[in-house]
């Protein structure tokens, strides 16, 4: 049914599924006492798949969805995840030929960095409940979650943003998916 839908409709569907999974499932599974936020992981994957421009928009969408379900100041997640999406795209553009494992490792670092950025924004806004949270533990668990789920999230964002697999030409076999 969604095959003919545009990137906006597909992205909205992916974000809606992420929100439902977040509040219905991930809120109850807390490795090391940490809730994994799938919207942070999606913002990273969106940036890595779509580049800095699409990453900023997709990250913004993730941030807006996050702002609707959290009780942090409205706009804080929008600001942070827009930057996360943009930076993910910008960094990935510098290393276009990274393999699947390397991409997962980069995603992991970016997701952990996203948590740091969120904490930084919380510090600027003097939000004690953000700055006094166990930031390092949250960043590590989020990073590990990103490492494990990145292939799935890349697939989901590729579908949402209608990005064809990168075609690379090999001398022996012609075109193949990258």
């Amino acid at each position: 049914m969604m095959a003919g839908a545009g990137p906006l409709a597909r992205s909205t569907l992916v974000l809606a599924v992420a929100v439902v999974v977040h509040v219905g499932l991930l809120a109850h599974i807390t490795p090391a006492g940490v809730i994994v936020d799938p919207l942070v992981l999606l913002a990273v994957a969106g940036g890595m798949m779509g580049g800095r421009s699409t990453g900023a928009s997709f990250g913004g969408g993730c941030g807006l969805a996050s702002d609707l379900i959290l009780h942090t100041p409205f706009g804080m997640s929008l600001l942070v995840l827009t930057l996360v999406g943009y930076l993910s795209g910008a960094i990935t553009e510098q290393i276009p030929s990274a393999g699947r494992l390397a991409r997962a490792a980069i995603a992991s670092l970016l997701a952990a960095g996203g948590i740091g950025l969120f904490a930084g924004a919380g510090w600027l806004m003097d939000l004690v409940y953000v700055t006094e949270a166990p930031i390092v533990r949250i960043a590590i668990v989020t990073g590990v979650a990103s490492l494990l789920t990145n292939p799935l999230l890349e697939r989901a964002t590729r579908w949402a943003l209608i990005i064809r697999p990168r075609m690379t030409v090999s001398p022996e076999s012609g075109a193949r998916g990258g």
């Binding site: 928009s57 913004g60 100041p73 409205f74 706009g75 804080m76 929008l78 600001l79 827009t82």
Partner: peptide, 18 residues
């Protein structure tokens, strides 16, 4: 331009909320 628009929107929402 897109990034600036998103950041300005976020700041406007933060201001409204505050």
């Amino acid at each position: 331009l897109r990034l600036a628009l998103l950041v300005v929107t976020a700041i406007a929402l933060l201001t409204l909320d505050a």
